[in-house]
Amino acid sequence: MPSVAFLGSHPLGERCLEEVTGHDAFDVKLVVTYGPAEDTWWDGCLYDRAESLGHDVVTRSEERAVLDHDVDYLISVYYPNILGAELLDHPNVAPLNLHQAELPRYRGSNVFSHAILNARDDDHWRYGTTLHVMAPDVDAGDIVARRFVPIEERDTARTLYDRVTEASLELFREQLTTLRDGAVHRVATPQSAYNGERYFYTKESLDGEKEIPAERLAADDEATQLAVYDKIRALDFPPFEPAYTELAGRRLYLTATNYDDLFGSATVPNFDIESDTVAVSGD
Rank of each mutant, 00 (worst) to 15 (best):
170 E>R: 12
113 S>W: 06
121 D>L: 15
129 T>G: 04
133 V>W: 15
132 H>W: 02
89 D>L: 14
191 Q>M: 01
161 Y>S: 01
112 F>T: 09
170 E>Q: 09
150 P>Q: 10
124 H>D: 09
95 P>H: 06
125 W>C: 15
84 G>L: 08
136 P>C: 11
140 A>G: 14
128 G>H: 10
115 A>F: 14
167 A>M: 05
187 V>H: 08
152 E>C: 10
178 T>W: 10
91 P>M: 13
174 E>W: 01
123 D>V: 13
171 L>F: 04
168 S>A: 11
185 H>I: 15
118 N>G: 09
94 A>F: 04
86 E>A: 15
134 M>G: 15
104 P>L: 03
144 V>E: 07
114 H>K: 13
175 Q>C: 09
84 G>W: 07
139 D>R: 13
148 F>Q: 00
184 V>G: 00
190 P>K: 11
136 P>W: 07
126 R>F: 00
92 N>T: 05
151 I>E: 08
111 V>S: 01
192 S>A: 06
106 Y>R: 05
88 L>Y: 00
194 Y>G: 14
191 Q>W: 15
119 A>D: 13
97 N>A: 13
145 A>S: 11
148 F>V: 01
195 N>K: 14
143 I>Q: 04
171 L>G: 02
134 M>S: 08
106 Y>T: 09
163 R>L: 05
178 T>I: 09
168 S>M: 04
108 G>P: 03
139 D>C: 07
119 A>I: 01
150 P>F: 03
153 E>W: 13
188 A>Q: 02
190 P>V: 04
130 T>V: 08
174 E>K: 12
189 T>W: 01
175 Q>M: 08
185 H>N: 05
124 H>F: 11
136 P>Q: 07
196 G>K: 12
112 F>G: 10
172 F>G: 01
174 E>Q: 03
138 V>G: 09
114 H>T: 00
137 D>C: 11
188 A>M: 02
151 I>Q: 02
117 L>C: 10
